[in-house]
Simulated assay, not measured.
Amino acid sequence: MTFRTTFIGLTMAAAIASPALAEYPERTIELTIPAGAGGGTDTSARKLAILLEEMLGTSIAILNVGGGGGSVGASQFMQAKPDGYSLFATWNSPLTTVPQVQNVAYSLDSFTPIASTSETAYTLCVKADFPATTGEEFLAELEANPGKYTYGNDGIGGTMQLAAERIFQARGIDAVAIPFGGAGETLQNFLGGHVDIYGGSISTVLPYVENGEAKCPLVTSAADVPALPGAAGLESLGLGDKETLLWRAILGPKGLDPEIVTMLADTIEKAVNEPSYVEFLKTKGEVPNVVKGDALGERLQSEYDGLAEVSKALGL
């Protein structure tokens, strides 16, 4: 066999091994968001898409498919071809929480993890005159008054409820969960006095913390959160292993070419760390957090398993 023959053979083998990556991307990528326009995941994904368009040299079309806490969009997306031209921008709840309380057509194995993008804690907040300010005081007050206090959350079996109950169960706290249709609706009912405690995302309640109408003694992350300097992280309360975060990620359909996954993950990491995007996240009380490929898959599985235990304990 001549050198020329060997070279041609190796070149053909390389082309066969990764045909998808050779000219990728050469057309528009469709980015499915399993929520309506204007929400946290939608605005974050659209901002990121602008940066990705420039870095990838192609256009990105946004497709909003809301409903079912994200399950409608996830179920529709799992039918997409694994060619790199269909991507899924989601928050963690449709993958790790919703399947605990709904019958869904998909599982974690229905997707290819590419990269997470950002994260933030949930928070528990009270009115300014609530008889507790620190995280420890807050938990002690709830512990001393079983069944007295109500907390709004994002729906029966939603991530916020499970996040709160992971903490409450560890401290033997009995608080009454009141489900609403999301953080905005929870906030309205909290401000209106219909629930004692706001449970939801930081960005939604932050303006009312800044004007002194509310205070947030606790966040659901292990560490403190700079956006809420008065809130205790769970590590300081000896509850670091009960951490639950709201985080966002981009996934592909099952069977996506590993080389495309690696290229997209590296590009997403670069875009997420662009100063303009970091500053954008800061306004939402979020921070960049990139976990790629198999490590992201492990994070999804770990969270799913942890929330399954809480869901089972609650009879959900």
Rank of each mutant, 00 (worst) to 15 (best):
T120G: 12
Q76G: 11
F88L: 04
A222W: 07
T123K: 11
A232F: 04
V291F: 08
T134E: 08
V104E: 00
P131V: 08
S311C: 12
G199R: 05
F280C: 04
T133S: 15
D241Y: 00
W91R: 03
Y85Q: 09
T244F: 08
E30Q: 11
L228D: 04
S107V: 00
A105Q: 14
A163G: 10
R299F: 01
V209P: 04
L31E: 05
S86M: 10
N211R: 12
I167S: 08
A177Q: 06
P226F: 11
G233H: 10
E53I: 08
G152E: 08
D305S: 10
I29A: 11
Y208N: 11
P113W: 02
D196E: 15
E243G: 07
A313R: 14
S75C: 00
A183C: 09
Q79H: 15
L124F: 15
S236I: 08
S107F: 00
A22D: 02
V225D: 11
T150H: 08
A74F: 01
P82T: 12
V287D: 03
G297A: 04
W247M: 03
K47T: 12
D224L: 09
G157F: 02
D129K: 10
I156R: 15
N153G: 14
L10Y: 06
P288F: 06
V290M: 07
I173H: 04
P19L: 07
G67D: 03
A105C: 02
F190R: 08
G36E: 14
V104S: 00
L296M: 14
A313T: 10
T262Q: 15
I16V: 15
G69P: 08
T97I: 05
A163F: 05
E23R: 11
K148T: 14
L316I: 11
C125P: 07
A15K: 06
G255A: 11
S18R: 06
L162P: 02
G155A: 02
V291A: 05
E286Q: 15
E243S: 11
A115E: 01
M263Y: 15
A121Q: 05
L281C: 03
A175T: 07
G315M: 10
L206Q: 14
T150A: 05
P82G: 09
L246K: 07
G84R: 03
A227W: 05
T244L: 10
W247H: 02
Q100H: 15
V225C: 05
L56N: 12
L162R: 10
N64E: 12
A140C: 00
D294V: 13
S201C: 08
E303G: 01
I114T: 05
T244W: 03
R299M: 15
E210A: 13
I50S: 14
I260M: 12
A183K: 05
D196C: 06
F7P: 00
E185A: 13
T150R: 13
G36S: 14
F3V: 12
A20K: 13
N92T: 01
T283G: 13
I50E: 13
L228T: 08
A170V: 03
V261D: 05
C216Q: 08
F138T: 09
V290C: 09
A128L: 07
G285I: 03
N153M: 10
S59E: 15
E165V: 01
I173M: 11
F280P: 01
A295P: 06
T186F: 10
V98D: 00
G57D: 10
